[in-house]
């Protein structure tokens, strides 16, 4: 997990749980570590912001899409709140998030509230069945 605004409450929850938490310095690291963990038999979840996803394109290609490693991605959608509230200028991180995932062929589901929680299981199952990365994108879900 790379800490960011969308996941900060999740970060606190994971840190106080029995789950193992790794906080790399950059998202490309996180994806490569997750690929190694999965290859070794673990089931990691990569939590990162959309901006970091854009930074980590080569790692996602090389450690996820190319070798068919079923990475589970939880992508914080920076800019979602402002854009959906009609504020301008619109954050380009908002604009390119879903199109970028679509360009990579990574299926994604929106996780914006409690009613969307089944999306996590759908994402998990899809990654498992396709042996390819899958994602949920989160805008407000982890803000107080």
């Amino acid at each position: 997990m790379i800490p960011d605004g969308e996941s900060r409450l999740l970060y606190d929850a994971v840190r106080s749980s029995a789950l193992a938490l790794i906080t790399p310095c950059r998202e490309g690291e996180a994806i490569a570590i997750a690929a190694g963990l999965w290859t070794g038999g673990e089931k990691p979840l990569v939590v990162l912001q959309n901006t970091g996803l854009m930074e980590a394109g080569d790692a996602l290609r090389g450690c996820g899409l190319g070798p068919r490693v079923p990475l589970r991605l939880m992508v914080g959608w920076r800019g979602y709140g402002g854009a959906t509230a009609g504020r301008t200028p619109i954050d380009s991180a908002y604009t390119y998030t879903e199109p970028l995932l679509a360009a990579w062929g990574i299926p994604c589901w929106r996780l914006m509230g409690d009613e969307d929680l089944p999306a996590l299981a759908t994402m998990d199952r899809t990654a498992e069945e396709t042996s390819l990365p899958a994602a949920v994108v989160t805008g407000w879900a982890f803000r107080p």
Partner: peptide, 19 residues
């Protein structure tokens, strides 16, 4: 090779933790 520039050690870290 070609799995991701600069990240062989990170992949190795994941393997080491898992195994």
């Amino acid at each position: 090779l070609a799995f991701g520039m600069g990240h062989a050690g990170d992949f190795g870290l994941g393997l080491a933790l898992a195994r």
